[in-house]
Simulated assay, not measured.
Amino acid sequence: MTNPLHTLSAEGVAVWLDDISRDRLRSGNLQELITDRSLVGVTSNPTIFDKALKESDAYDDQLRDLAARNVSVDEAVRFITGYDIRWAADILRPTYESTGRIDGRVSLEVDPRLARDTERTAAEARALWWMVDRPNVFIKIPATAEGLPAITRALAEGVNVNVTLIFSLDSYRGVMDAFMAGLEQARENGHDISRIQSVASFFVSRVDAEVDKRLEKIGTDEANALMGRAAIANARLAYEAYEQAFATDRWKALADAGATPQRPLWASTGVKDPAYDDTRYIDQLVAPGTVNTMPEATLEAAADHAKITGDTVRGAYEQARQDLEAVASLGIDYDDVTATLENEGVDKFAKSWEGLLGRVSEQLKAHS
């Protein structure tokens, strides 16, 4: 029987894993997923690294060396995460080459405490890009108002960027504009823009979690009927915006110079509500030229029983609009929902980073 992930890949959706650990790398598990699960990319975040450090002794030798060198906690985090990202990038390098430099990608996040600081975000992105020194790495920068100019600046300098924390359609349009501006500047700066890649991480399940909470509070039959429909509608309309942006004369000029589009990446695809089917954000967001980055549990669920029936996005734009309009008609403010989610996302990522710093600090002391 065909693995649904193979079918998903054949539909033009790149399968990525939202997880990394040194145990996964040294055990050969990442290579197994590449072979058996059609995996072509990896994303990471501070919570993932914190969990990896908590659950494994694979970092002990490096922690002892870092403690002996008396490096700061911030630098230790860069060394530890950079080590894993480089290793994963090397494992995925054949995929990078075989897909014409499109996939085989690994993402590393800029310190999320800098999300509201353009200058420091841009500087940190440059530093991480230099430190990891792999062409198939993405540096993750948030789609905050302050992050957008940092995204443009990084791309203009030839840095591959994974734009994270996108919730609203307006924000996504701003991200695509920042991407094209970055490529235009990169071309002016003499870079080969065919070698610059980017993805735009559009968050999915968190939208349902927030909207459903508000619908539940309303509590009417009409509100209950709309539960679980906002996130998929939002993502489908994001893909429509993507099609529109990359059909412009502005994009054609860049494409003629060798550029490839910034792919939409569906992030936060593990369901938050156990009442929902565990592959709903896989099955219902199938569209060519996209990426779906999945937690391991979602990846395995998709491999087991995802129902891939072809493109489930491009024929559903009108229904998506109707779903969001119906939610709005009940007094739920779309802009407030997405602003709330962005602010919460920045705060949660920053707290996760603080947690990672605390974990590394404790382990440095334990190994000194």
Rank of each mutant, 00 (worst) to 15 (best):
R126P: 06
F349A: 10
D249C: 05
R314W: 10
L5C: 01
L357Y: 08
Y317G: 09
E354G: 01
K351Y: 01
E325G: 03
S352H: 01
A88E: 01
I218L: 13
E362N: 02
Q319C: 02
F203E: 10
Q284G: 15
S268D: 13
A58E: 06
N292Y: 13
G315I: 02
L165R: 06
Y83G: 02
S368A: 15
A150C: 10
I141D: 08
A209G: 12
L341I: 01
F203I: 09
A115V: 04
A115Y: 04
P149I: 03
I91E: 13
E184M: 06
V77Y: 03
I166G: 07
A76I: 00
R37G: 05
I282N: 09
R26W: 01
S9Q: 13
A303N: 06
R206K: 14
I218R: 11
N3E: 03
A326W: 05
N3I: 01
E188D: 14
A76D: 03
L66E: 02
G310K: 05
L17D: 11
A123K: 04
R78M: 05
R105P: 00
A241N: 10
N234A: 11
L148C: 07
A366N: 08
S171T: 14
A125T: 09
I34T: 11
F79K: 11
S168T: 13
Q62G: 03
S171M: 13
G182H: 08
T47I: 02
S329G: 15
V73L: 00
A143H: 01
S329Y: 08
P149V: 02
V211F: 14
A150Y: 08
L169R: 15
Q363R: 09
I308R: 04
T35G: 02
G190F: 07
G104S: 00
V271F: 04
A223M: 07
R101K: 13
G270P: 13
V327T: 15
M180P: 06
D192Y: 03
V207E: 11
E75H: 14
A127H: 11
A241T: 13
D18V: 10
D277V: 14
Q262E: 15
D212Q: 05
T248H: 08
L299F: 09
R153S: 13
A339R: 12
T2A: 05
R229M: 10
V360E: 08
T220K: 07
R105Q: 00
N162V: 00
A301E: 14
T309D: 12
A303P: 08
P264W: 05
Y96G: 00
S98E: 05
I332N: 14
G100K: 02
A154N: 12
L330K: 14
R116G: 05
Q31D: 14
R24K: 11
E354V: 05
L39F: 12
N162T: 05
K351V: 00
R153N: 10
Y276C: 04
R134I: 05
E362D: 15
E243I: 11
Y334Q: 15
R195Q: 15
H191Y: 11
A297G: 10
E124W: 00
I48H: 08
E188L: 06
A52E: 07
A143W: 02
P288C: 03
D36A: 06
A287D: 10
T2E: 10
D323A: 14
R37A: 12
A14H: 00
